[in-house]
């Protein structure tokens, strides 16, 4: 018996790495299709987007860097097309991360297609919405929290005259009545670096702008606090939330598929902790006492 405890206490880390690789790989390649319960906060986020009316202006912030893209893309690829599916809704893409514009383009390329006669960005059509008619991309503004604050203080001045690609957007902004932050009806912030707290500080508190937030797992605690305080209308947490949103919106994707791997790896974590503790009490602790 003590041999077994000794084995448990001294399992090589590479064994855990190999087990992780095999379990995640297998469940990703052959999903089991485990049942999924939709949480109230994701349902709320879905309902907010679903209730958008013609003429509403939505600002989508890509607070996304490469490290978090795989975790947040399930939310991006279901929430963004859901917004675009609402008739008459106008959209402004923005990013507070230097890599963010890459992920805006990746999202657009995934959910849209080039407009007739065009073959490059920004001339893409998403759910019938055309660039510079229904949506624009103002791209990256440096400063992170300062950029978010500056947009709230002086939206037109911070955005400037041109979009990310150098096209004049003044007419588009004028035509859609966007003069200041007060004219933005909804913000969706897809967070890898916890930008939601700045949107709350600079947009929700002074203007009561409605904010939805999808985020990677490590940013969840801050978002849950603001959601429970009523400052975020809805939150979509990590891949689990994205899977729930994909299920609700019927924009099925990798988040739903990876839910099985997500479950398996969380069970493996629990088993690893159990095995580690059995080894500790059966072998290591006894050795320490001797």
């Amino acid at each position: 018996m003590s041999n077994l405890f000794k084995i448990f206490a001294s399992i090589d880390r590479r064994v855990w790495h190999l087990l992780t690789f095999i379990l995640v790989g297998t469940t990703l390649l052959r999903p089991i299709g485990l049942p999924l319960k939709v949480s109230p906060e994701v349902k709320k986020a879905y309902e907010v987007i679903d209730s958008l009316k013609s003429g509403d202006v939505v600002l989508i912030n890509f607070d996304i860097a490469a490290f978090g893209w795989d975790e947040i893309k399930g939310s991006a690829l279901s929430m963004v097309p859901h917004i675009f599916s609402k008739e008459g809704v106008k959209v402004i893409f923005f990013t507070d991360q230097d890599q963010g514009y890459i992920f805006i383009e990746r999202t657009i390329a995934e959910i849209g297609r080039p407009m007739p006669g065009y073959d490059r960005f920004p001339w893409y059509e998403i759910h019938g919405k055309k660039y510079l008619q229904d949506y624009i991309n103002i791209g990256f503004i440096p400063g992170f929290d300062k950029a978010i604050a500056a947009l709230a203080q002086d939206f037109r001045g911070t955005v400037g005259r041109n979009d990310w690609y150098g096209n004049n957007i003044e007419k588009w902004l004028d035509d859609n009545g966007i003069k200041s932050a007060k004219d933005i009806d909804l913000i969706l912030t897809l967070d890898c670096a916890g930008a939601q707290s700045y949107w709350v500080s600079y947009w929700y508190i002074p203007y009561k702008t409605r904010i939805l937030n999808a985020m990677i797992g490590v940013s969840a605690p801050g978002s849950i606090v603001n959601y429970n305080a009523g400052m975020l209308e809805g939150i979509v947490i990590s891949i689990r939330g994205a899977a729930e949103y994909q299920y609700l919106s019927k924009y099925y994707g990798m988040a739903l598929v990876s839910m099985d791997a997500f479950s398996i790896i969380q069970f493996m974590l629990i088993i690893a902790i159990l095995i580690g503790n059995i080894g500790y009490y059966g072998w290591e602790r006894r050795q320490e006492k001797r």
Partner: peptide
């Protein structure tokens, strides 16, 4: 696309391997 993004994503993804081995080796009562 070929260096920065995959490198950045890989470093983050490696965490899952460290988390499982750390769960067994360090989370002790």
């Amino acid at each position: 696309d070929s260096f920065i993004l995959p490198g950045d994503a890989t470093i983050y993804a490696i965490l899952v391997f460290y988390m499982t081995s750390a769960a067994a080796r360090t989370f002790k009562v």
